[in-house]
Design a protein around this nucleic acid. Structure first.
Lengths: 111, 111
DNA sequence: TGAGAATATCAGCCCATGATGACATCAGCC
DNA sequence: GGCTGATGTCATCATGGGCTGATATTCTCA
């Protein structure tokens, strides 16, 4: 294959990783990956308070991780697969770069 | 292939994500993906204090993200590609599950 | 239209955790 | 051996961010 020798590694979006790193938010993301849910479902599933969940959902919404879809007086939350796919791609690229670095034992000499 | 219809989605390791989510630590990981470095190099590259870096490196070490390799009075830090690869795989699985959920519009009915 | 449910918003508390400084340790070199 | 530079450890401090309670808003249904 003809990948350029020095591929411009695009690191994972730090802000996105920070948003997803919270345990409750990661749980929400995992739940939403399987099925679209509304806040009530998430309250049942996680056991967290409604207010707490609503705050976290806002963070996820503002970070572009989830989309909302009103349905009567309920609000459905659905994951945006492309955002997660991009993140996954960044980590895959990191892992592959690291593998090459390890395989070729590339290291900067001690000063 | 004979995967069961309901693949058991293994979510990303929350602790690992938390460790990598810190901006400085993510920067360290990105730098180490390209080449193995010792603390002195990381101080130059990041501009952070040596003490601060040492603390973050300990976190990364204890989380199994990096390995250390003493070299005289220097200490080389190298990334463990498998750990990142596993993490990437978890996010890829999440993204694919989410894509299926979106494509088939799978949602839990309002109560 | 009034009641009640579902959800969002806001202010405040408080704790986890990142940053820093002082000190300890260890290796190499004179 | 003594010095110097590289690195790790510890105690402390400060701030960001998560949790909560009170309240607002909006929708459904009787």
């Amino acid at each position: 294959m003809m990948t350029s020798a020095k591929t411009e590694l695009i690191p994972p979006d730090a802000e996105l990783v920070r948003v997803i790193a919270d345990p409750l938010r990661l749980q929400i993301v995992t739940l939403l990956a399987r099925e679209t849910l509304c806040t009530t479902h998430l309250v049942e599933e996680t056991g967290a308070r409604q207010t707490n969940l609503s705050n976290h959902l806002r963070v996820l919404r503002e970070a572009g991780v989830v989309d909302t879809e009103p349905c009567g007086r309920f609000t459905y939350y659905k994951l945006r697969p492309d955002v997660l796919a991009t993140l996954a791609g960044s980590f895959t690229a990191l892992a592959e770069t690291a593998r090459t670095t390890a395989a070729t034992d590339r290291k900067r000499p001690c000063p």
